[in-house]
């Protein structure tokens, strides 16, 4: 029990769209152990962002539960930090890089020297010491996302949520940032739930990859990635083990796109129980 950081059970979300309900997430159940790096992939429109927003406590679910360190999530929990896809819009443009990273710490009530030390350490960890006094809009996209990651890291969350954080940066920056996430995860021992639509990225980063079905979403399969801990853009990506895992996930995503769903017995039972909760 104590090794589970994040416990998502029968999570469901139905959007109430002016008389026409849209069932985005039907039944999601998975666990992330402390110190794990788990990726979530699925076909586009699979409700990945809905899942992440529910887990982050930013969106009320229609059914099911989310527990962080054994405590039910009802609003944004203290032990969670989110890195959003839209880096340019999630940083406060009126604050410097240092101010952006330090603001949540100030809110936590840390004193000035502690804050400064944590901010400096976080900026050093993402390689942005030189830009501490710049404003976010003075930096490139990749650097802005590093600031957002530094802010999340400095917050010292028990779980770090990342919502397609590298979807809008160029390929080279993306590879650098992927390695940065791996490094931070190993150095700091933080638990990471990484949502992406990029299959290669999911396999390269994750210890496990959760493949989602199409809408209404359920977990199609939980794929364990058998790759060594030390990963390398060149060697890992060209290894047979990577190719095997990649093919497996690719195949699952293709099947998800065609509407394949897990065993009807389990889904049916869960769907029914979720339906009752949503109505009740």
């Amino acid at each position: 029990m104590s090794t589970t950081a994040l416990d998502v059970r029968n999570l469901a979300k139905t959007y109430d769209g002016h008389g026409r309900d849209v069932e985005a997430v039907r039944d999601l159940t998975f666990r992330v152990d402390r110190g794990e790096l788990v990726c979530v992939v699925g076909p586009s429109g699979a409700g990945k962002t809905t899942l992440l927003r529910c887990v982050a406590g930013l969106l009320d679910s229609s059914g099911g539960t989310v527990h962080l360190d054994g405590v039910p999530v009802t609003g944004p929990p203290a032990g969670m930090a989110v890195v959003f896809q839209e880096y340019g819009r999630s940083l406060f443009p009126w604050l410097t890089v240092r101010g952006n990273v330090g603001l949540p710490l100030k809110e936590k009530g840390l004193d000035r020297p502690t804050r400064a030390a944590k901010v400096d350490a976080a900026l050093a960890a993402v390689g942005l010491c030189d830009s501490a006094d710049a404003h976010p809009w003075q930096l490139s996209g990749g650097m802005q996302q590093r600031v957002a990651i530094a802010r999340a890291v400095a917050y010292e969350p028990s779980v770090l949520l990342m919502d397609e954080p590298f979807a809008s940066v160029d390929a080279q920056t993306r590879a650098e940032l992927e390695d940065l996430v791996r490094d931070l995860w190993q150095d700091l021992g933080v638990t990471v739930l990484f949502v992406t639509h990029d299959i290669d990225e999911a396999v390269y980063l994750g210890q496990r990859v959760l493949v989602l079905s199409n809408r209404p979403t359920v977990v199609l399969e939980d794929v364990r990635v058998d790759l060594p801990t030390a990963r390398d853009q060149l060697r890992t990506r060209s290894s047979p083990a990577f190719a095997a895992a990649r093919n497996r996930v690719y195949e699952l995503v293709q099947r998800a796109k065609q509407g394949h769903r897990p065993l009807p017995r389990a889904t049916g039972a869960r769907a029914m129980s979720t339906g009752t909760t949503a109505e009740g």
């Binding site: 930013l58 930090a81 989110v82 959003f84 819009r89 999630s90 406060f92 809110e107 802010r151």
Partner: peptide, 25 residues
């Protein structure tokens, strides 16, 4: 909206959100 979500997810209090996010923004 993303700025508001950011403020919420980092649990910025009402006063901080008002001063640092809403008014500055």
């Amino acid at each position: 909206e993303v700025l508001r979500d950011t403020a919420r997810s980092y649990r910025l209090g009402r006063l901080t959100t008002l001063r640092q996010v809403v008014l500055r923004g």
